[in-house]
């Protein structure tokens, strides 16, 4: 009889496996998991039964998430404003944080929101850029004000990235990461390609590789840990796109060490941002 990854006593996987979502308090999660890539709000192409804050927070708490940092769908694509997102976070201060959504097609909004940035504290964590959807390459001048703001304040900026995408693929992201060495780049989805992630990791030090949509893919986490190292990988889910348990399960069942799992789920973010934010 082989002992499975879930049944090895004393491991992180075993602790999550046996933890009862219905009777354990949220703060008793085996690790304080930080989900660094979330969204909120309805979506044009997907039915989400739980895409507003109250229902999302219920799911986050029962799955042991300490913080979700998100950008609101309608702030990225619509006329919803980042100040409204701040107000949502203020209703769930123990769980929700947000990135200021940057829409290159709304330069006035960018200017206004950067001026308001300090008023978004303590809920704001950085900026979010979604170039592949806005179809404006990350090196475009329309992002400059936002990037210079992030560089000056040494903020993290989460990018949606995808290998081969002309707007946020490896080449433009490499140029940008080198141009702004004081910015902490969160490479959303890690290009969905561990080879591209490795190429960027090898050329830069200010990059962290985020995992949304990858943990379910066979072998992906192992490849990323081997090629870029567990100290440069952070956890994310695109919540409410993807289930927290599903993504945590993909990390916990990967053939990597417990230390690497801890790095990914919480350690790296606590090293970058601390525990009190």
């Amino acid at each position: 009889m082989v002992t499975s990854v879930w049944n090895k006593p004393g491991t992180i996987a075993n602790a999550f496996w046996e933890r009862g979502w219905d009777f354990e308090a949220p703060e008793t999660a085996p690790l304080p998991v930080y989900d660094m890539h979330g969204h909120m709000g309805s979506h044009n192409a997907i039915y989400f039964a739980r895409c507003d804050a109250p229902e999302m927070v219920k799911h986050l708490k029962r799955s042991g998430i300490r913080r979700l940092v998100f950008s609101h769908h309608h702030a990225l694509w619509g006329e919803f404003r980042n100040a409204q997102v701040r107000d949502i976070c203020s209703q769930f201060p123990d769980v929700l944080r947000f990135y200021v959504a940057i829409n290159p097609h709304r330069p006035q909004y960018i200017e206004e929101d950067l001026k308001l940035y300090d008023s978004f504290k303590p809920y704001v964590v950085g900026l979010k850029i979604l170039a592949g959807y806005h179809k404006v390459v990350v090196t475009d001048k329309r992002y400059e004000k936002a990037m210079e703001f992030a560089a000056e304040r040494k903020l993290p900026v989460l990018f949606h990235t995808w290998n081969g995408c002309p707007f946020n693929g490896l080449d433009p992201m490499t140029q940008l990461c080198k141009r702004y060495p004081t910015v902490t780049f969160f490479i959303g989805h890690s290009f969905s390609n561990w080879q591209a992630a490795k190429k960027l990791a090898d050329q830069t030090e200010n990059t962290y590789f985020e995992l949304t949509s990858l943990p379910g893919q066979y072998g992906m986490i192992e490849h990323l840990v081997q090629e870029v190292g567990s100290k440069r990988i952070i956890f994310g889910t695109d919540m409410p796109w993807f289930d927290e348990f599903q993504h945590i399960g993909g990390i916990l069942s990967a053939e990597i060490s417990d230390e690497a799992k801890k790095d990914i789920l919480c350690g790296n973010i606590e090293r970058l941002l601390g525990k009190d934010w």
Partner: peptide
């Protein structure tokens, strides 16, 4: 699981935590 595109473990953790 959807192996080998997907792995076995991720959906297992979702399932043991269904409400």
């Amino acid at each position: 699981s959807g192996m080998p595109k997907m792995g076995f473990g991720s959906t297992m953790l979702s399932i043991v935590n269904l409400q």
